[in-house]
């Protein structure tokens, strides 16, 4: 063991598939370098499991640089682990100490059923986006990009909302498993930009209806989502969404037939 390397105890949720029951299983992670990322630490554990003929711990991951939003672990009671404003793949083992016990669980929400072990099905997010998270323009036939001038302050604010990576940490962090930070960020981005105006009032209605149909909880404004969001999406988005929703529902002509499709 080289200097500074750590031995850790992992308590990991194992669940064969969506149908079966799961349980916490304890593993040892030995000789872990503090320079490893959290996922690389799991890679090491998995290599040793495979060599024993055991099934590796399954977890979602892809880009491993904090942008694809695929990694998702709930580490020691916090989505994406103890550090602010990063994803699990950006978490490095130097944030832990030798001998520590680390509890690793999947995101917990009725709308995010477990696929296997630590991976969950977040297709609910896709369905919410499909219900209205777009500007209805076809390819071609659009104006020159500089014909739409957007004040920098608006563009920047819309950008802040657009940085959401759709990882679901907000849902995982919320005591109500509410998806409002995600949904409101998506709605806000387009609601702030001129391109999003024509469908602004129908979009918010459609997306909120789909969000409700997916079985997410509601918002109690605790701010846990904002605190845990790897991209630090602001709670202000939820406020904007609420405002738009009430305006749309109570004072606007646009009507959306509620066709919220439930999860598979």
């Amino acid at each position: 063991m080289s200097t500074g390397n750590m031995n850790l105890t992992l308590k990991v949720w194992r669940q064969k598939n969506a149908q079966s029951a799961g349980k916490m299983v304890t593993y040892k992670a030995e000789n872990i370098s503090p320079d490893m990322s959290f996922l690389e630490m799991l890679d090491v554990v998995n290599e040793s499991l495979i060599l024993k003929g055991d099934e590796p711990i399954h977890f979602d991951h892809d880009c491993r640089e904090g942008i694809c939003g695929m990694c998702s672990l709930y580490i020691n009671g916090r989505p994406h682990g103890p550090k602010r404003a990063i994803t699990t793949c950006q978490l490095h083992m130097r944030s832990f100490h030798d001998g520590e016990t680390i509890t690793i669980e999947p995101w917990r929400a009725a709308a995010f059923p477990v696929v296997k072990d630590l991976a969950v099905d977040r297709s609910a997010f896709d369905r919410i986006q499909q219900s209205g998270g777009f500007v209805s323009v076809n390819t071609g036939g659009v104006p020159d990009a500089n014909e739409i001038a957007i004040p920098k302050v608006i563009a920047d604010e819309a950008f802040n909302s657009a940085t959401c990576i759709g990882c679901g940490a907000c849902v995982a962090a919320c005591k109500n498993a509410s998806a409002m930070l995600f949904v409101s960020a998506k709605i806000s981005q387009l609601a702030m930009l001129p391109q999003g105006q024509p469908e602004r009032w129908s979009r918010v209605q459609a997306m909120v209806a789909q969000m409700d149909a997916e079985g997410f909880g509601s918002c109690t404004n605790t701010g846990a989502c904002e605190a845990e969001c790897p991209k630090e999406i602001s709670l202000t988005n939820i406020s904007r969404m609420n405002n738009d929703y009430f305006s749309a529902k109570l004072f606007r002509e646009e009507h959306v037939h509620e066709h919220g499709t439930s999860g598979e």
Binding site: W13, G77, A173, A177, T220, G223, A224
Partner: peptide, 27 residues
């Protein structure tokens, strides 16, 4: 009603305590 809905939105709870940095009263 909201509390019941919110509870059912997370049927399986976490093992590790959620010490999310949100105020005590809000939770």
């Amino acid at each position: 009603v909201l509390t019941i809905n919110n509870r059912s939105a997370r049927p399986v709870t976490y093992v590790a305590h959620n010490d999310a940095p949100a105020s005590w009263s809000s939770k």
